[in-house]
Nucleic acid binder design. Structure first.
Length: 395
DNA sequence: GTCCTGACTTGATTCAATATGG
DNA sequence: CCATATTGAATCAAGTCAGGAC
């Protein structure tokens, strides 16, 4: 923001630890702002940062028991949603017909959150912060309705800047009732007006709380991410495949989730170079394949015309061809994989949205070493899950 | 209801470590 | 062996959400 951050002094810092613990000494000649013992919060030290006037905390590592416990609870709430999600979907679909505008807006917003995995979209300080939106703060200018687009009816186009000013741009066919409701919500409004003018994040979450204890908008993201991983793993994994293919299948499933959640990254600076190199390798391999084909044909001809008793030679050539073709296929697969992944960030979903027990169970079931999926710190972070997942775990 | 704030999670980027290849 | 590419961890800003004041 072009502003300078003030140095944090001991006099700014509040220490939070239990009374009977060893209270850390402030640096010589200094005092803490305060020492307190509040076991209703998890932070160890806190101060106020001078740019946005917001609280900053020293917190425990993700591998800590406390953080692990909280992570586990998060996924347990998402699993409870699995039990009631059909009922909730049936209800919001029914509410699309409600005579009450408020109810219809809520029903369509919830549909967005569920189907498109949008964030809830709290109000933000205008001017002070970047102009980004989520579901509840969507404006008319972010939505375009197309009655008919190449054989598809009722197509909705969303285009807005979300968290971290990452662009969300998506074109999806929606149900007729959703389409009609959106037309109604946009009627007689300016582009800058709120799409859901009768809705706030507080009222939305209040409604969700009534449907299920602990349910908030973000639980849908967790639920849909984890259930998508589980489902994709089921579809993409074949027991007889090689380890490499299985890991590739996992990454594909991971990517499906990242795409759903719109987790993007800047295209790596060296991406073009990397692809060119790979393309060269593919061309070289292609040439080898062609060459091998010629040799197979020659061996066949030899066998016929000269009646040579060397079928072994042909077999050899055929085997070589097959191997080269496999290598070419693998290179092509690698290229597709890289291309599809160039703008997609897999880490965020892996760390924050995918119940680690799904991955652990999958590894056990298909004999994939866990190190292929989780790095050392990730394994430490998910220690809680290793204690709780066997190969039969189902999200 | 609206506004405000505290406490927590989520997120892309940056930085550091490790792997790769000429 | 060194330079470069790739991977993994750390960072801290930007979100979510609940609760209290009015």
């Amino acid at each position: 923001m072009g502003m300078l951050k003030r140095r944090v002094m001991p006099e700014d810092v509040v220490i939070n630890c239990s009374r009977d613990s060893k209270i850390p000494e402030p640096p010589a000649g200094h005092q803490w702002k305060e020492v307190r013992a509040d076991n209703t919060v998890t932070w160890l030290a806190a101060w106020t940062e001078n740019i946005q006037n917001s609280s900053k905390y020293i917190i425990l590592n993700p591998s800590s028991r406390l953080k692990g416990e909280m992570d586990w609870q998060k996924y347990e709430v998402a699993r409870r949603l699995k039990g009631v999600v059909n009922k909730i979907r049936a209800q919001y679909q029914a509410d699309w017909r409600s005579p009450e505008m408020k109810k219809r807006q809520l029903a369509v917003a919830l549909y967005f959150i569920d189907k498109l995995a949008l964030r809830t979209g709290n109000e933000k300080e205008e001017g002070e912060t970047a102009d980004t939106v989520g579901c509840c703060s969507l404006r008319v200018e972010h939505v375009q309705l197309h009655g008919k687009v190449d054989s598809q009816e009722h197509v909705m186009e969303l285009d807005f800047l979300g968290k971290d000013s990452i662009r969300y741009s998506n074109r999806v066919p929606v149900e007729k009732l959703v389409f009609q409701n959106l037309q109604d919500f946009m009627k007689d409004k300016d582009p800058r007006d709120d799409l859901f003018d009768a809705l706030t994040t507080a009222s939305l979450n209040k409604h969700l709380q009534d449907l299920m204890e602990g349910l908030t908008a973000k639980v849908f993201r967790t639920y849909n991410a984890s259930i998508t991983l589980q489902e994709q793993l089921r579809v993409l994994t074949r027991a007889e495949d090689s380890l490499t293919s299985k890991v590739l299948a996992y990454n594909r499933a991971n990517r499906a989730v990242a795409v759903l959640c719109n987790h993007q990254r800047a295209i790596p600076k060296t991406f073009e170079k990397l692809m060119q190199k790979l393309q060269q390798k593919i061309e070289a391999k292609k040439a080898q394949v062609t060459e091998a084909q010629v040799e197979v044909e020659k061996a066949k001809a030899d066998l016929r015309t000269r009646g040579e008793n060397k079928p072994k030679r042909l077999l050899q050539k055929q085997r070589r061809l097959l191997k080269l073709e496999e290598q070419l296929a693998r290179l092509r697969m690698q290229a597709t994989d890289k291309e599809e992944n160039k703008q997609v960030a897999l880490g965020t979903a892996k760390l924050n949205y995918l119940d680690p027990r799904i991955s652990i169970a999958w590894c056990k079931r298909f004999g994939v070493p866990i190190e292929k999926i989780y790095s050392k710190t990730q394994r430490e972070r998910f220690a809680w899950a290793f204690e709780r997942a066997d190969e039969d775990f189902e999200f």
